[in-house]
Computed example of a mutant assay.
Amino acid sequence: MDLILWRHAEAELASGDLTDEFRKLTSKGMKQASKMAYWLDSTLPDTCKILVSPAIRTRDTAEALATCGRKFKICPELGTAATVQDVLLAANWPHSREPVLIIGHQPYLGQVVGELLGHPLHDYPVRKANVWWISQKQRDAEEMQTYLKAIMTPDLVIR
């Protein structure tokens, strides 16, 4: 199974009038999301299931991928207060037969990375707009191996 974690792109700062859930992407964030969507669309299998936090900034990030023809599902369990277990349950890890892309938030994305890579007490710093791709394969008849397949940043995408 492949679990791809994409942190939302750069968003507006929260302020008195703007609560966390309603923050939109900045113009820089829109460019970041567009670059990563381009890379993801060229890399993701067609069967990839895409699950998105209901926060505006994650939906804006997902919309960049939707312009490539990819469909996504808003998943309330992936909101800003989600836990590692919420994410793994939503993704059906490790049982899903198809790859799953989660578009979400820190700190839980970094916590999921730590959990899956064997460091459950470590929060990995998943930066804005970055993608962390985690894979699992059969090592031998009984053991599954989980490994970090790739980390991608919008700065590395050439369009």
Rank of each mutant, 00 (worst) to 15 (best):
K49Y: 00
R159H: 15
K149T: 10
M30T: 11
H122N: 11
V126M: 08
L51V: 04
I102P: 05
S53Q: 05
Q145A: 13
W132Y: 15
H105K: 07
V52Y: 01
L109K: 02
W93L: 03
T58E: 09
A82I: 11
G79R: 10
L116R: 05
R59N: 07
H105I: 07
E115T: 10
K149C: 00
T43E: 06
Y124M: 00
E21A: 14
E12V: 13
V157W: 06
L148C: 11
D17E: 15
S135L: 07
V157C: 06
S42Q: 12
P54L: 05
L116D: 05
C68L: 12
T83S: 12
P94L: 08
W93M: 04
K28A: 12
E21R: 14
A9H: 11
Y108E: 10
L121R: 12
I158G: 03
I151R: 04
L78F: 02
Q138Y: 01
Q111A: 12
L51H: 00
L3T: 06
I74K: 04
A91L: 00
C75L: 12
Y147D: 00
N92F: 08
E143P: 02
L148W: 06
L117N: 03
E115C: 10
T153N: 08
P54H: 07
I74C: 08
A55P: 04
A66L: 08
A11H: 06
R57E: 02
K137R: 11
K31E: 12
L109I: 01
W93D: 02
